[in-house]
Amino acid sequence: MPDNTPTPPSAPSPSPFSLVGRSALVTGAGNGIGAAVARAFARAGAAVLVTDVDKDAAAAVATDIVAAGGRAGSAVLDVRDAAAARDAAEQAAHLGGGALNIVVNNAGAISPAMFDKMDPGQFEKVVAIHLGGTFTVSQAALPFLPDDGTGRIINVTSAAGLVGTIGQVNYSAAKAGVVGVTKSLARELARRRITVNALAPLAATSMTANIRGNEKLAALTLARIPLGRWAEAEEIASSFVFFASDAASYITGQVLPVDGGTVM
């Protein structure tokens, strides 16, 4: 007689966007896009080390993640400090049981001025944080990144680094440099199955407050955004989850603008 016993349903396949079992280090995560990324990673299952130069801000984000049922720790990190970067990478790896799967180089600062009025200190500081910080943190994290195909370095650039911005030669130079680091490092680390990509986001955060608070600048900026609005930081964060996940395992050396169509 035929066996009419119902076949039990198979277990659902894990989502390719799941970060369960992985650990992440996010710089500049005390607020804005960095905080949104840290929270999004935690919701996707990752253990997250929230870092920022503001100790209290980083701790508050980590506390929120834990209160929501996620796993997180926090650390003070000036991304220009190589020793502090090594300590943070080790702490993040400890959260992940010895491996650090995901590094997000998000920390940044601005110091706008027209070129003829920009002093060398303004230029050097912004380049040191954005470009130097990307180098310093990535190098510190490298010994902890696994070779099993889950290693990710996700850098943050900007439309300023792709097309330039008036009054921000320092920021534009730094962000253009981040693109170069991303592409070169992607080639170098491909042999270890570590992917390196960058996002160029545009969102309503403290970094854009000077533009949004100026009626003329705000109007000019919105006119260049085809979608006609500023994104919230949470909208940007999902793109980071994508790059961090298995869904992006065959993507490396790419720059993804997440800016409402500003750069296309």
Rank of each mutant, 00 (worst) to 15 (best):
L222A: 08
L202Y: 01
N105H: 07
T262G: 05
V37A: 01
S23C: 04
K175F: 05
S18H: 03
P6W: 06
L100A: 13
A82T: 13
F115Y: 11
I211P: 13
D119G: 13
A46F: 05
A113M: 08
D81R: 02
A42N: 06
G32N: 01
D246K: 12
V127A: 08
G30Y: 02
A233L: 00
E90D: 15
A68P: 12
V104A: 06
A107L: 05
D119H: 14
E188N: 09
N155E: 06
V53G: 04
M264N: 13
A141K: 02
V263W: 03
L19D: 04
D78M: 00
S249G: 08
D81K: 03
P112S: 07
V66E: 12
E188M: 04
N170E: 05
A47T: 07
A92C: 12
A218T: 11
L189F: 15
P9Q: 04
I211E: 10
M118N: 08
A237D: 04
G213T: 13
S15R: 04
I153F: 13
M1N: 09
Q254M: 10
A93C: 10
A231G: 07
I211K: 02
R187I: 14
P146K: 00
A68V: 08
N101E: 14
Q91W: 03
A92S: 10
R80K: 12
A89H: 08
A107H: 10
L19G: 07
A40L: 01
Y171Q: 07
D148K: 02
K117R: 14
R224T: 15
A88G: 13
A92G: 14
F115N: 09
A75Q: 11
A160K: 03
V20Y: 01
G96S: 04
D147Q: 08
V48R: 02
V53Y: 01
G32S: 02
R192Y: 07
G180D: 11
F115W: 11
D56K: 02
S249P: 07
G32K: 00
S249N: 13
G97H: 12
T195R: 13
T221N: 11
T252A: 08
G34P: 10
A176C: 06
V179W: 04
A67E: 13
Y250N: 10
A219M: 02
G73C: 04
A173I: 10
V127W: 09
A35V: 03
E188C: 08
I251H: 09
E235C: 00
